[in-house]
Each structure stands twice: as C-alpha cells, then as structure tokens.
Design a protein around this nucleic acid. Structure first.
Lengths: 209, 209, 209, 209
DNA sequence: CATGAATGAGTTTTCATTCAT
DNA sequence: TATGAATGAAAACTCATTCAT
C-alpha cells in the first residue's frame, strides 16, 4: 500500500509539472530547488551562500542566475511549489474521505508527511525562513497560505460537528499547526513510530472519542 | 493576583541577577541584551547588524565589543539567560503545586508566558535562531535545555500517572512543545483569550478528564 | 531639395556598401550596428549589455558573436563606418563647392547633419565613448580621424584666406568642434531652427562678414 | 596677479568648506573625491572600479563605504560640489565686473579655468559621465545646473545689449558651452596660449567689435 | 548560422571586528 | 569605557564569451 501512496505522489508531481504549476524535479531547475531547500533547512537561508547551492548542484555560482533572478527568488519558488503541491494533494484526499473524521485524519497525515517526507525540506523552509523573504514576496506566499488554511478550517469544523464537539477552531488549528510542524525537529522517519500512528496520536489532540 | 505574579517575576530576576546567573535588565549590558533579542526576533540574527543593535541601544557599534566579545556571544547570552530564568521559575512553581496536574498546568502556563510575555523575544530567538549559534555554543545551550526538558518529562509523567493515563511522554511532550512555542506566531497578549485560559486548553491536549 | 539631399546620402551609402567600405544598413549586421549605436548613445557602452543589443535586434545574445568577435568590435565598427561615410560625403561636397566659404559651410552643415541626422547615434558614440575602445583600436580610429581633421583644417584655412582673416586654425577648429558636436545635446531636429540656419550661425563664429 | 587669483580660489574653497557646502579637499573624504574625479575622467565612471579609487587613495575598498553609501554617491558629490564651487566663484566675479562685456569675459574665463584648472577633472565628469548617474540624482544635479545656466543667460543678454547686438541667447550659449567644455580635450595648460587669451578668443565668438 | 545554458572572472557592497584616540 | 574610521574577507550578482546541439 505504501508503494501505491508513493506512486500517487509521483503521478501528482508529474501532472502538476506538465501544467507548469511546479518545476519538474528531474530538470536542472528542479534539482537546484531541491538542493537549495535542503541547504536552507540545514543552515538557514542567510547562512547558505549561492556558492554553496551551486557546489551542491555541481555548477558554477554564476549559472544559478540563469534559472533564478535572485537568491530570494529561489526561496520564493521553494515556498510556492511546496504549497501548491500539498494543496493539490490535500484537496484530493479530502474529496476521497468517507467521513469528516477521516478527512481530518487525511489532512493531518498529509501535513505530517509533507513536513517529514519528500517535501520536508521545503516545508521547514516555508515555516522557518519566512522572514528572509522580501515583503512583496511574503504577501504573495501569504495569499497561497490563506487558501491552504481555509481548507484546514473547513475540514476541522466538519469533523468537530460530526463528533458533537465544540471548540474554537481558530485556536485548535494553531495549536495543531505548531505540534505538527515541530515534528520536523524530532520525528524519525526510520523509527518505530509510523507517520500514520503519529497522525492518529495527533488526531486525538483534536477529536476525543 | 496578576500583579503579584508580575512582582514575583521581578523579584526572581533581581535575585538571579544578584547571584550573577542573569544580567541585570536595567544595566547597560542588560538593555543591550533585551534590544538585541527584540531585533533578532523581528529580523533574524543574520539580518540584524551589530550597528542595528548599537543604534537601538543608543551607542556606537564599536562599543558593543566592550560588553561582548562577538556577535554570537550576544546570541548565546540571550539563550542562556532565558533558559536559566525560566528554569528557576518553573522549579519554584512545580515545587509549590498541590497536584501533579496543577504542576503540569503551571509548567504550561509558565512556558506560554515565557513565549508570549516579557521573555517572548528571547524565547523566540532560542527556538528559531538555533542554527545561528556556533557549534560549541550550541552544545553548551543544549546542556541547559536538557535539564529543562528533564523537569518537563518528570512532571508530565506524574500528571499522567495521577490521571491514570498511559501515553508516550516523549511524543506527547514534543507535540506540546510545538503547540506552545508556535503560539508566539498567533497569540495576542491583549486579546480576549488569557494565558491561563489558553493554558487550560493546552492542558486538555494532554490530560483528558 | 531636401529630398535630393536625402537621396544623395542613400546613394552614397549604397555605393560605399558595394565597395565593402561600410556595412549595408539593411543587412542583419547593419541593423545590429544601428541598434547598438542607438543603445550605446542612450545608455553608454558599458551600461549596454550584449543581451540588450540582441533583444533590440530580436536575436539571442550568443548569435551576436557570429557577426562580431567581441563587444568592442561592434564599437569599433560603428566608429569606423561613421567616419568613413562622413569623410566621403564631405570630400564630395568640398569638391563641388564654388567658394572656400561655401566649402566650409558645407563641412559645417555636413557635420551638423552627421551629429543630428541619421548618423547621430554613431557620431555621439564616436565622441563620447572614445575611452571604451581598447588602445589598439583607439589608434586605428585615430588614424581615420586624422584624415578627417586634415580636410577640415585645409578647408578652414582656405576660407580664412579668402575672407582676409587671420586666425589660429588649430584653435578655431577645436572651438568649432566642441560647438558643433555639443549640438547633439540640445538641437531639436523638428524645431524651428533648420540645420542650414544653424550652420549659418556657426559659420559666423568663424567668418565675420 | 596669477598668485592672487589662485589664493582667492583657495580662500573660497576654505570658506565654502567651513559652511559645509563643499568637502574640505584636505580631508580624507575630500582627497577621495579628487582621486575619484581624476579616475572617472581618465577611464570613465563604469570602467573605474571602487578598488581603483581605494588604491589611488591608499585605503581598502571597503573603507570607501564609510564615506559614501554607494559608488554613484561619489559621482553625485563630485558633480554637486563642482557646480556649487564654480557657481559661487562666478557670482562673485560677475558682481565685481565693471561692464557687461567684462562680466561675460569673466564667466568665460572662469568656465575655461573650471574645465582646465583644478576642477577640470570634476567638470569633465559633470559633462561626460552624466548618464552614469541614477535618475533621481540626475534630477537633483539638473536643478543646480539650471541656476548655473540662468546666471550665464542673464550675463550674456546684458553683454549683447551693451554691444548693440541681437542674437538668440539660447543658441549662442549652447554653441559656447560646447566650444568651452570641449577645450578639456585639447587645451594645454602649460602651452603658449594662456587661459585669458583663449577666453578673449572665445569672447570674440559672441561679441564682435 | 542560430540557440541558450553554462562559465568564471570581476563588480559593488556588507559587516563583524579592531584599534588608535 | 566610548568612539568611529578603517579593515578585509566574503557576499550576491553581472555579463562577455564559449560551445554543444
């Protein structure tokens, strides 16, 4: 089953790349973005030099500017694409869920996977390198995040209604956001605890049976 | 009561300063640390220049180096002092608590206050500027954090036992860490929700009645 | 008459192009030179990139190097051709003049037209981008300019003799050079003052009736 | 007499420096401006690197930015100060002149001296490096030039009236501007022709006896 | 001939840190 | 202690030029 999930993710990337919504991860530009995300996450945006990125990709530093006008254009691209990609993935999973509880579980699972899986570097960058983005680019990314959060709020409210629970969705989502995004600092993908199990734990923070 | 709490905090600072464990916040050095924390939080460590800090304090950039050997010594001092201070505060509150549940509530309350109150800037810096610290200084701060986390684990375990709940304390504490530290990005000190109420909400994530 | 003059200029270009002395302005290379001259004049040689020129012509930057070995080869060609062309034109007009005064007037007229007419961009480049040329190319262009100046000195001397005036031709020509070439900064081709009228004004600086 | 003139110039600089209108040429900043002007004139603004200037002054390239925020701030300062200085000098000479003819002669003399004397480098830069200035700085300098030109127009008109000549002052001043500024390319300060003699020649271009 | 990705040397600029005063 | 000019290493970015396709 895990293999099916992974295949579905690859199919989605391919389809989004074909539509020009994200960069093909196999292209020169796509590899550059992946390496940059890795470095930005590990060292932080400011402490990562353009030369570092170039060295990681195996090109000369000047060549970077063939693909991106500036260093912070790279940062923006990383953030934009990771939102676009996860947004599409979440929408699909929510649509396929049979109950509101399961839709919320799918979102949690998806966000945990986003943070700890293949897009983990990009998600960390999105969360922790926010202030390194120029103001106008921040506004642009903020617009995308708003859409993303709208999906969360809606799904969460449905799940609470279904469980006959009342709670402040605004507060609850934010507590959960912190809990889930923080997993990047401690969750071990190769450890005993699977993403699905962790997701169940996290769901319990919200929905009490 | 709130006034009493605030007074207690000031007394603690004074007492710690007298022991040389933290810098007197009214001294030149103390004001420098506060301003630096504010700037590091707002702009990030790397994007904050020594000149920025000097300007904020009202001195010349060269003068900073009479107080601190280097820029990252400032960062270390901010992190060290905020841990030392909150550690002492938490120990006292845990000792005074009548039940394990209340001890845990006190910790949560204290961490929320640390993150959103007077030491908010320093706490944010501690969490988000971690990688800007040189490796040897990271190790030093890590030692302090270990003590801090030990207090948390212990208290949490007592509270779970008391409530006849079983859970993975390791996982639970980390989910909570994320949830609480993330409040810095959204919690409004002057809003309707008080720190105590928020703490009660957060406690519910852990202890189910 | 104006049309005849314009036609004569086109005929001259055609004839020089046929002899390989200048580049046919309708050819790809010729259009490149014209666009480059326009940009060099507007922005200066250094601030004009090879990409700017390529974009203006509608080709890719790499393709430029099929026409010219280097960027400063373009600059040299612009300078060389504008001298060659105007030199030929002046020789013809001097030969056709009935009096020395009129020969000088023809030269003035021709230089004003060179500076403000079709070759205005190239002439500006010749005057103001001089130092951007590599030393050996400067020497080459200097040789051409010497010929050009010889024609001026000779004609001027004849005109002064004819008018029974004595003056330092060296100084006078240089004062005039400055006055005429500076017109590029203020003379309005579409204004009330015609080139011929302006030439008469300029002639008065030299020959007093 | 020449020595008196030179002394008067030095006195003026000193007085303007004391008022903060120009930079003291003996200060570090003043020497930097002089060297930069020399290099900008010789090689052009773009081909002169900040390192070139630093080397000429005998400091490190980074130190330049202690005195000027950017390279083009240096260019602006050169242009601004040379106008301010010559403006003051001209105003004084015009005020002291007994006839309108002599006032105009003084202006010509002063401009020739500005172009060929101590401020020759700066004047050349003002004329030939114009486009290297950022647009907003161009506007600022343009304001100063307008004042400068107003003084010229006025004085020229008086001189023409006094000589019972009619002429287009606009055209005449521009022809003269070109003639005078171009002297920088050929006039030899140590040659036989003195500035005063050259000024008399130039005056003849305007006022016919 | 044309393309356009890649090069790599060179540019301006930044900034923590030093040190003579 | 405080100052602020000077340092110098390192940063992001530019761009003429090359070359495989």
């Amino acid at each position: 089953m895990a293999i099916q999930v992974e295949q579905a993710k690859l199919d989605l990337v391919e389809s989004l790349a074909a539509q020009g919504l994200v960069t093909d991860p196999l292209s020169a530009k796509g590899r550059l973005l992946a390496k940059a995300a890795k470095l930005f996450r590990a060292k932080g945006y400011e402490r990562t030099t353009v030369r570092d990125i170039a060295a990681e990709v195996g090109i000369q530093s000047g060549s970077i500017f063939h693909h991106f006008k500036s260093k912070d254009e790279i940062l923006k691209a990383i953030m934009e694409e990771v939102i676009v990609y996860n947004m599409h993935r979440m929408r699909k999973l929510v649509d396929e869920a049979d109950t509101a509880r399961n839709a919320l579980l799918a979102l949690i699972c998806c966000e945990l996977d986003a943070v700890n899986g293949l897009t983990g570097n990009a998600m960390s960058v999105l969360v922790y390198e926010w202030r390194s983005l120029s103001e106008d680019k921040q506004r642009f990314i903020l617009g995308l995040r708003a859409e993303y959060e709208a999906l969360w709020s809606e799904t969460m409210q449905y799940a609470l209604d279904e469980a006959d629970q009342t709670a402040d969705v605004f507060v609850l989502r934010r507590l959960l956001t912190g809990a889930l995004s923080w997993t990047t600092t401690w969750y071990d993908t190769n450890g005993k605890l699977s993403i699905n199990e962790l997701a169940e734990e996290a769901l319990k923070l919200v929905i009490k049976e």
